[in-house]
Amino acid sequence: MPSMLLFIIIAIVFLGSVLMLVRAGKLKERHAGLWLFVGLVCIVLAIFPQSLNFAARLVGIEVPANLLFALTLLLVLGVCLHLSLEITTLEDRIRRLAEEVSLASVERPDPTPTDQPSVTRPSASTEQPGVTDQPGQLVDPTPMATDPDGTPGMKPAPHQDPSATPAP
């Protein structure tokens, strides 16, 4: 039975490489479970090919190989769908992270109105274009700093004066 031997070897190599990947930390154990199961089924089928015939007769498929193909296709489809789901989750998490990162980089130079108004006002009004080159550091126009007085008409509103900013 050389063909049986061949398939047993293939299944063992497959199982072994899955285990190695898990050991190396390249494959999460959560995802490895499915592949370990597939490898085990392969070994069982390689050792007891009759079991396939039995299963085919059980569900009414004439050619046992067709059952194997159908099951394989279903498995692959299922895995693809699962991966799409995972990607969607990851995309959403990445988007949330991107959102947080961008909001944090806006808020960092943002002073809380009551804390240190004396520090923030001058830095906002004497905005230097040269400082803006660093990607992380923003010359935030401090939207909150304009409000603390509660006097909308009297606000200095340094960032809202179009003529003030472009002049170096």
Partner: peptide
């Protein structure tokens, strides 16, 4: 936008209009 004096919310990569707007509303 910075020179014009706007608040700049810099997304690290392109998220599409929907993602940008969501971020804006969150702000």
């Amino acid at each position: 936008a910075r020179q014009a004096g706007a608040i700049v919310i810099p997304l690290p990569f392109n998220l599409g209009v929907g993602g940008a707007m969501r971020c804006g509303y969150e702000y």
